[in-house]
Design a binder for these strands. Structure first.
Lengths: 186, 186
DNA sequence: TACTGAATAGTCAATATTGACTATTCAGGA
DNA sequence: TCCTGAATAGTCAATATTGACTATTCAGTA
């Protein structure tokens, strides 16, 4: 339901057409959500059917007509309900990268370390991008900060995981060495 | 693709039928992913079509026959590819709760605080559940730890956000008071 | 003027995901 | 024996989501 909440929240601030909504989301909210164009149109139509928003054809000069969406009184009610549900609740966050980690022991540790280093680099780039986002007005700023907090925690954790894997790999390499070279001082 | 990776990773450890896979995911991996039964069957069929896994009917006493899935050599290849992609990459995590926060200024601050307090409670419960998960063998333990790290960061951040909202509300209540009661000492 | 590439505005078919349901077996008690 | 509730094993129709595509307009420029 977050996507409906998002669209209603934007339409609450101004009437817009689908493309405009999509552009705004891509430009200003890419940090907090994604919403592909077909999904946006799908949800807009659904909400229009339910009477949460109203559509109107509008033309601008020679351009082909476009559907402008506007929130209704019913839509405002639903917005408030969805907003209260969202703020008051908490739904488990899923991390796509966890699945790989869960099976990390299927690869040799040194390769895992190389791959996690790549992940680390990608994380750093994402953090830099989040830090580069210009100040937003109002609560949207919170979301950017949230993202930064999360990315920083993620980086620390990833460093820790890599250190532990490296330590385990060293230890096992060491015992191999011991066996192969029978070197009790290594 | 994480879901395919997940199923392949499980089938790599033992041949299983759909229900077994689903049960394992619900019981042991609920912290890191969700995967509803119909989705599991859908993906299993898709991977069978592609030759990543093979199916076999099997019967156990009087029970109705069930389809047992087994990873193939091709499936093992794909598993390794997906695993490398997953470990080496990073895909943005989306937080459902962010959408609500982005529109928090649509509600009076005191109500936002009440709602965020509810969220806080739910978070604490989730953290307690994550801490209660018994030790897992191997890398799966990493995922549980990751979850705990994230929940702790989330709680700290939420405390901070609530404190800031409370402070802003106090300040604005104060200026209201000043205006209404003209009390320069409050 | 004619052409090219970017911006605008959306559509379509294919895929993925889910809630709600069915149907069987089995263990244990009334 | 018969019944009930839990466990087992899945299916189906409805919904949601996406990649890839179309088609128009406009600004700049060769």
């Amino acid at each position: 339901m977050e996507r409906e909440l998002l669209l209603l929240g934007l339409l609450r601030q101004a009437r817009m057409y689908g493309y405009q909504l999509h552009e705004f989301i891509e430009r200003d909210l890419a940090t907090c959500t994604d919403l592909k164009k077909p999904t946006a149109y799908f949800l807009l139509e659904k909400m229009a059917r339910r009477g949460w928003i109203s559509q109107a054809e509008e033309r601008d000069g020679n351009r082909p007509p476009r559907r402008v969406y506007q929130i209704t009184a019913e839509g405002e009610q639903q917005f408030q309900r969805l907003l209260r549900d969202n703020l008051g609740g908490y739904s488990m966050t899923r991390f796509a990268g966890d699945v790989g980690l869960a099976f990390a022991d299927a690869l040799p540790p040194h390769e895992v370390l190389v791959l996690l280093h790549q992940r680390h680099t990608a994380l750093l780039a994402d953090l830099a991008a989040a830090r580069a986002v210009p100040q937003h007005e109002g609560s949207i700023q919170l979301v950017v900060e949230h993202r930064i907090v999360h990315l920083e925690a993620e980086l620390h954790w990833l460093d820790d995981v890599m250190a532990r894997i490296a330590a385990a790999a060293r230890k096992s390499a060491q015992s191999n060495t011991n066996v192969e070279r029978s070197d009790p001082y290594d």
